[in-house]
Amino acid sequence: MTGYQELGALVHHELSYYRRERDSEQHLGRRRWSLSVPGLIIWFAVITWQGPNIRFNLNYSWYATLALPLIAMGVATGHIVNERKNGTVGWWLSLPMPRYLLVLSKWVASILLTAQRSFYVAGIALLGIYAMMLNGTVSPTIVCHFLLNGLTWTLIMYCLVPPLAALGLFMGTLTYSRWKDLIPGVWLMLVATGWLPVAHPGLYLTVNQALTVTIKPAFALAVFATWLLSGFLLWLATRILTRVTGL
């Protein structure tokens, strides 16, 4: 088997994602749609109810794309932690494959699973147009602008999915290690570094009064940096699984 075939087989396996519930043997926790579907239904209800009275800028709804990197991180952490909760960690870690492939496949799978969970963004676009039709502001220019803006938001958030998936894997593997007491410290560091772009938001992106987002050149640089960081985090996760497991 070549490395690529192994990776393919592993990713294929990792695309299944669930958590065995502790109490009921019969129930599998699959939370694929648990937040997005009720969210969209409520959004639909609000729009239908308010109808012509909607006066606020519908571009606010694109802030929902902020959830995408968080989903990536959650899925990635869950992927590692669930092996233990589901009682399958022994099978996983005794696979005759190098540990970096085990980590890499979970990373790729987390990104793909996040993409699968991002269909709610299309729902937001449709509901936005529906709202414009109800309050009578619908026009080709406005719809185009609304959709383009949404596309930009989604693109920006997708750029952050791989590094956050890597971060999630790293955090997940920390729970396996003798260093698991460090987790709160790592969280603190994250919040601190997360503050950097927030402190100078204008450096990477600008959001104008009409809530249109524009990407600045520094953003590309920042994304490049976070991708380098993901590589480092994946390497760290591999090291933890090989060297300092607390198993």
Binding site: S16, Y18, R20, L28, N86, G87, T88, V89, G90, W91, S94
Partner: peptide, 12 residues
């Protein structure tokens, strides 16, 4: 290897 207290992937 059959790990201790192992379970199988429940969605399989």
């Amino acid at each position: 290897y059959l790990p201790d207290r192992a379970r199988w992937y429940a969605d399989h």
